[in-house]
């Protein structure tokens, strides 16, 4: 029983970064813009969040800083993709390279420094709750709040004007434009949102999960988030499932380490998140008939009214 709680608690704790980043990417892609810069934006967000929180002594400002820094990179990507109609794959890769370099260059003085971080909510009345008490005790406020983004985005996409506009802009920008949808503005907005979410995801790592700044601390979670959007077939609820799956793998790794059980050699365990991401990708591509209506039809294609 304790083992189970341990695994579930770690799962919950290690999934929010992937969740936030993939939800952001999901909205960006629903609007028609493929953003392969998530990894770079997460790194920049992680650094900016950590540094801002540390200098301003405010976690809230830290989160704002993370969103602002990653958001700027997202605007750059949006400008190239929306206005210049540049290749979205190359632009995204360039943003990842730039973000990785920037965070490494500017972050060097902060390696090994300590700063503010979100502490777990344990040690209060929460511990006493039956069953979920010990589970919740290890979580932090930030991570738990992330879960609220899932229903919020489901509501946004399915039941609001804005959601309808986003879906239309990603499915058929020409038709949406003809109907009066401001396609360029929607796509900017979606990309910016995706960037801010990636920034928050990075901040979760540097302010909550493993407090502090470390070069390349995302370890490919940005890429995993992109894969999870495909796994999620562009539905927020399934993105949550994907993120939890990633968290579970992480938790198992900890569990085996902590208990000293070596069913699988450690290095194979380290590889598992990456291998299973590919596996999951294969699974959805092979098994699922294309889910019409949710796959953004115009994903990755630039739109211009003239052509």
């Amino acid at each position: 029983m304790d083992d189970l709680i341990f695994i579930v608690a770690i799962t919950l704790k290690s999934s929010p970064a992937v969740l936030l980043a993939s939800l952001g990417e999901l909205i960006s892609e629903r609007g028609g813009i493929l953003n392969l810069g998530v990894e770079g934006m997460m790194l920049v967000g992680a650094l900016a969040g950590f540094v801002t929180a540390r200098q301003s002594a405010s976690l809230a400002l830290g989160l704002c800083g993370a969103m602002a820094a990653a958001g700027l990179l997202a605007l750059l990507h949006a400008f190239l993709c929306v206005h210049l109609r540049a290749d979205q794959v190359i632009s995204g890769l360039a943003v990842t390279i730039l973000g990785t370099g920037l965070s490494s260059f500017l972050g060097r003085p902060f390696i090994g420094q300590t700063g503010l971080h979100f502490s777990s909510i344990g040690g209060t009345w929460i511990d006493g709750l039956p069953l979920i008490g010990p589970l919740l005790a290890q979580q932090n406020l930030f991570g738990l709040l992330c879960l609220a983004a899932v229903p919020a985005l489901m509501y946004l996409l399915g039941r609001t004007w804005l959601g309808l506009y986003i879906r239309a802009a990603g499915q058929d920008p020409a038709a949406a434009d003809a109907a009066g949808v401001p396609v360029a503005a929607i796509r900017y907005g979606c990309t910016l949102f995706g960037g801010c979410m990636a920034g928050l995801a990075g901040a979760y790592l540097s302010l909550a999960y493993t407090p502090g700044w470390k070069e390349g601390m995302t370890g490919g979670q940005g890429w995993i988030a992109i894969a999870m959007v495909i796994f999620a077939t562009w539905h927020p609820l399934r993105a949550l499932l994907g993120a939890l799956l990633f968290g579970l793998l992480n938790a198992l790794q900890f569990y085996f380490q902590a208990t000293g059980i070596e069913l699988i050699p450690a290095y194979i365990l380290h590889m598992l998140p990456y291998l299973l991401t590919v596996g999951v990708l294969v699974l959805v591509t092979v098994l699922e008939k294309p889910v019409l209506g949710s796959v953004p039809g115009a994903l990755g294609k630039p739109f211009s009214r003239e052509e």
Binding site: L164, R167, A168, Q171, A175, A176, A178, G293
Partner: peptide, 18 residues
């Protein structure tokens, strides 16, 4: 036709009516 194929009729008719 300038319709978004993946959306329903009513959604298409609502588009642009912000």
């Amino acid at each position: 036709f300038m319709l978004v194929d993946a959306l329903s009729v009513v959604e298409n008719l609502l588009l642009g009516h912000a």
